[in-house]
Design a protein around this nucleic acid. Sequence first.
DNA 1: TTGACATATGCCGATATGGACATATATTTG
DNA 2: CAAATATATGTCCATATCGGCATATGTCAA
Lengths: 117, 117
Amino acid sequence: MARAATTSDAFNAVAEPQRRRILVLLKGRERPVNELARALRITQPRTSKHLRVLREVGLVRVREAGQQRLYGLEARGLQPVHEWVIGFEQYWNENFDRLNEYVKKLQQKEHADGKRS
Amino acid sequence: MARAATTSDAFNAVAEPQRRRILVLLKGRERPVNELARALRITQPRTSKHLRVLREVGLVRVREAGQQRLYGLEARGLQPVHEWVIGFEQYWNENFDRLNEYVKKLQQKEHADGKRS
DNA sequence: TTGACATATGCCGATATGGACATATATTTG
DNA sequence: CAAATATATGTCCATATCGGCATATGTCAA
């Protein structure tokens, strides 16, 4: 077998730096391809290809506007990523460390109390 | 130029399904390589390679324990991902839509009041 | 219709990757 | 030390990409 396809879901689409930048640029307002290309300082073809990936995984939508196409953010597609990551929040949060210590102390106390009674 | 390296940051490390599963398995407790391999039903070498990637981007830490190595979650490495994604929350949240409508109505009201006064 | 402008695609080259296998390296035991 | 157990690595294969370039497709204006 070979390398697994990587441009098939939001996680992979977002793994590409340029694509992340595109999404950031689309916050708030739609933009035509050339504008994005200029902003990112990359060629138009490359921009179109990234946009295609983003479109295929549902992170952007297109709207025809005369001779140009306006790309807009489809943020809902980022929810799976958010939900997955948020599942780890408690593990990096300082509060978690404190809670952990607290629980530890509590257990020691319980232990002591247990012995005592 | 050629393809950009993809296993150099958390975003890319997490783009791989198996690696995501490994991280999930490491929530709460450390685990030796073989246990992970069995749980994921993938070969040990493959598991070690995924762990290497995760280690290089700082998402897991290793601890020698006799003849085995215990891998533990280093959730802090996921913060950049979380922070990036959270920046889009308002755009997918329904509340945002409601807030938007609310603001719009408020502005109309202000407008009306302005006219009236 | 022709020309200018905006995008999308196809093709090629260089390289990164995931996976399977065999094997090297360590550590613990007998 | 030798055997067993646990991991890490190197090699080979097939394929997925990213990027550049040339070019096809589509749209609007004169």
